[in-house]
Design a protein around this nucleic acid. Sequence first.
DNA 1: GCTCCTTATACTCATATTGAGCATATATTT
DNA 2: AAATATATGCTCAATATGAGTATAAGGAGC
Lengths: 343, 343
Amino acid sequence: MTDFGEQAVAEQGGVQIGLTAVIVAVTDDEPRVLVVRRVDHALASTEEGVAREGDALSDDTLEALPYGPFYPGRHRTLDAGLRGWVEEQTQLDLGYVEQLYTFGDRGRDPREQELGARVLSIGYLALAQEAKPAGAGEALWQNWYRYFPWEDWRAGKPEILTQEIEPGLDEWATQADSPAEIRERFSRIDATFGSEEVRWNEDRVLERYELLYEAGIVTEAQRDRGQDMAFSVHSHPMVLDHRRILATAMGRLRGKLKYRPVVFELVPPTFTLFELQKAVEAISGNLLHKQNFRRLVEKSGLVEGTGKYESRTGGRPAETYRYVRDILAERLTAGPRLPVGKR
Amino acid sequence: MTDFGEQAVAEQGGVQIGLTAVIVAVTDDEPRVLVVRRVDHALASTEEGVAREGDALSDDTLEALPYGPFYPGRHRTLDAGLRGWVEEQTQLDLGYVEQLYTFGDRGRDPREQELGARVLSIGYLALAQEAKPAGAGEALWQNWYRYFPWEDWRAGKPEILTQEIEPGLDEWATQADSPAEIRERFSRIDATFGSEEVRWNEDRVLERYELLYEAGIVTEAQRDRGQDMAFSVHSHPMVLDHRRILATAMGRLRGKLKYRPVVFELVPPTFTLFELQKAVEAISGNLLHKQNFRRLVEKSGLVEGTGKYESRTGGRPAETYRYVRDILAERLTAGPRLPVGKR
DNA sequence: GCTCCTTATACTCATATTGAGCATATATTT
DNA sequence: AAATATATGCTCAATATGAGTATAAGGAGC
């Protein structure tokens, strides 16, 4: 195998490492993500492209995930690097932190040319307990369905799917070159967006985003390809590939919810079972059957009642619970699948 | 958020990106991983440490995963970079490729000092159809249980667990400072290695390795800390953090087996159901109930019989099947859990 | 040919898990 | 006190799972 030698060093040229964080919290029963919303001189080269996108967003809404460079001299580990600048800049105390993926496609960052270096970005998912207004005022918490309106099925199938996305995808599919290719495209649409036979799988956030990107009906695709906008789904784009990173985080978190007790990182220390359920629903984007959710959670042995009750909601008071951080019981949060269904 | 500016560039210093590949195949019912086994000048600084390890391995068995530098000028994407040098050097045609994790702890690579650069390594998992002798002769296929003998439960609970690991871990736990810390350590041991209440979870390969590392009873831990070897589990170490990367790959693959049809990447185009089963068993490290496995696979709709039979095994001939690459059926390989049990 | 051995495949059955809904309890509001 | 709202308890049918038993279909030895 090739080794690292003088030559390798010379050929590699400059590489910059950026750390991009998807910081998630749930407040008011909505999933929030920390977003930076300013025109950054470092992003200037993108500005034009974004501004061209027309009615989907106005000039001042350049939205990005918080990110910062990784300083190899300063940080012993990548995780430490991330925690470092996030806690420094947002005063947020990150609990759960997980590395997501390293993004390194050429051209993902237009600054590469100025810098004369390739910019890799290591994406992180972090869960925060509460969504406080977040220090500096530059950062703010946004409902993540702002960027992915088709992912929220809590109020039934989103209109944007039937009205915009499905027609758009169908058109894209039929524009393929060969009949075989057309069939192939329809298959992929069904597999990711569901159909009569295949039910919607909430974990496939990234696959859906990538299909929309490929079909060119998401604004970033048009920006990146320098196309004019024939049609684009009404949703908020983000700078660079940040919406892709967010999609990765959403899919990962939704998946993890099913086999690891990560919800507890998102709710306050004590909570009612219904509050817990609503946090799960916010993340997974669909409703759960209340009685079955309760059965599942109680059976898991991950929570214990506090003996105290809470009656802010009009009806019978609900007992509050706390998470029992039992390392032994941590194997499963919620069994094979969450109890989907109506309330 | 901090941006990339001149200053950032200056402070970042050099960063080298290495791509490390865990290339897996199943042959003769054993999981194999492609390993490089030579004394590399780039690894010279590690050589001493490894040689010191005594009876666990001899001088000439410096084992490493195949790795190569990432050339930002040459490769458009990280995946392309990996495929590039792997296919170039091993003549292997990689099918399934998945990014695993980016490893970046300071000190993970002793060459950092010579190079004056931080070396990050992006780990990849790749699945190959067959384990051919692999070109150059430098690389060879090794049974992955060579490095993780405690992970193979196909012939019952491995002796190394009862004879070496469990005593070693127990000793480590009791050496903790406070009673609380002792309890904590025992909890972690139970959670990762199982106990009466907690059954062995085959996915937790990395957690187990990291616990062994922390307990100092794995040779790399002693090498990295410069300790002398009081006691170490009889298993083969690897260069740098490659055994950790392999553990990550094993855990990821074992997990994926349960909800994605990845086994089919590891078996030939046609196979009997029992061959398929044995591939799953090789990866997951435990035996499955034959009749139930068959039921599960048939029900999944992922395979179809070819109408041809194969009788190499003495008994009644088995029908051969092929994988139906049905994008719609790809949701689940094997349902929530694989049918564990005796044959 | 028949018997024994071996593996493949079919079928059964008890138990656990899921999805869905009904019933009851305990608060607030009118 | 009645109406309304939510919490919690319980039932039940449909599946899924784990573990066998039974039968089929080949080869080897006699």
